[in-house]
Amino acid sequence: MSFDPAPSFDIDVVLARGQLEFPVRVAGGGGITALVGPSGQGKTSTLDAVAGLLRPLSGHIAVGGTVLFDAARGIDLPPERRAAGYVFQDLRLFPHLSVADNLLFGWRQAAPERRTLALDEVAGFLDIAPLLARRPHTLSGGEAQRVAIGRALLSGPRFLLMDEPLTALDPARREGVIALIARIRDAFALPVLLVSHQQDEVARLADAVVEI
């Protein structure tokens, strides 16, 4: 394992969902930090808050020493400046773009020095090279999942957020994606915050588990 052993995710916030307020505290090491717990406890909200899509009521969020949000200091970076590689549970591939244009969407937005990966490289790594000319609606669930992961990787992220990356997959595919996530961690040295309710798989993958 070649990840940075320095603390990666430093999250201490209060989130609002509807009328409810609930505190979330995550102090991850490097590598993969898994958020587990029953549904409805704000696991996805936590990822949204880290990505900048949901504004916490108070507290602070830092990743790898970079402060993304700090209510006390008035810091709130917009999503596009957080460099989060967010793999959504519902994938959210762009229906009007080909697979290649989906993959390159974030890459084209990124500053040149952050374009550390090339399309060929990622397509080969994820085994999606034959799909590049297709539209998202023609993909199978597993194919779409890998395209979504590729899109996040190519955007030059400083960390990955993965929301239930295994649920939509059949058991065989699931094994493949678990292996893939482990390889991403090792190959790209990216801290990963992963939400899952599949306890056993999480146990095999995660370097740290946080219960919410």
Partner: peptide
């Protein structure tokens, strides 16, 4: 949600508007 995805991929509001 597609616009949110574009934002997390580094597109600002204006780029999100034009490209999504």
């Amino acid at each position: 949600r597609l616009e949110q995805a574009a934002r997390t991929l580094g597109a600002g509001p204006w780029a999100t508007f034009w490209r999504v």
